[in-house]
């Protein structure tokens, strides 16, 4: 949701607390959450789940990360521009995959006949769906993170400049 950085205001340093327990627990938990998100992403075409759910989980993990650790530090790792970039990249990959069908003489977003379909039930199957799921995952997680950042920054501004 890059449309939110329209309303972005200058970021002001926020005094967030530094908490060991949260950090420790999160350091333990985050890999699993993200792994779970990845699982949902990669099995989007095999089981219930997919781009949105997986992306949401990953995005939530990123939010958790940025909530727990100092805001300043998350600025180093995943700043706003990056999340916006992820969003746009996800969408563009989606479109690009759609165009592949066109290049092979089929309709937009065509799967059958363009991509190898594989055996149902296996991870590498059902053609482009996996790529699309991943792209969507990138987009959704980026969106959620940028939403969060947007609200956070807007909020900070609200306190900063009356």
């Amino acid at each position: 949701m890059w449309l939110f950085w329209l309303f972005r205001r200058r970021c002001i340093k926020v005094n967030t607390m530094h908490d060991m327990v949260l950090e420790v627990v999160n350091r333990l938990l985050l890999p699993f959450i993200q792994l779970f998100g990845m699982y949902i992403l990669f099995h989007g075409h095999l089981s219930p789940g997919g781009g949105f759910s997986g992306g949401a989980v990953i995005g939530a993990s990123l939010i958790l990360y940025s909530l727990t650790f100092r805001f300043a530090r998350i600025k180093h790792r995943i700043d706003h521009d990056t999340s916006v970039f992820f969003e746009a990249a996800g969408a563009l990959i989606y479109v690009a995959v759609g165009f592949v069908g066109l290049f092979f003489g089929y309709n937009f977003l065509t799967n059958r006949g363009v991509f190898p379909l594989g055996v149902p039930g296996q991870l590498w199957s059902s053609g482009m769906i996996l790529i699309i799921t991943l792209a969507l995952g990138a987009k959704v997680s980026g969106t959620i993170l940028s939403l969060f950042q947007e609200l956070l920054e807007g909020g900070s501004d609200e306190r900063g400049n009356p």
Binding site: M1, L3, G154, G155
Partner: peptide, 16 residues
């Protein structure tokens, strides 16, 4: 979700 998020952003602006 996007509706809500957007509305929240607007509320923040309104509050400002």
């Amino acid at each position: 979700v996007s509706f809500t998020a957007f509305a929240l952003a607007l509320v923040v602006l309104l509050h400002k």
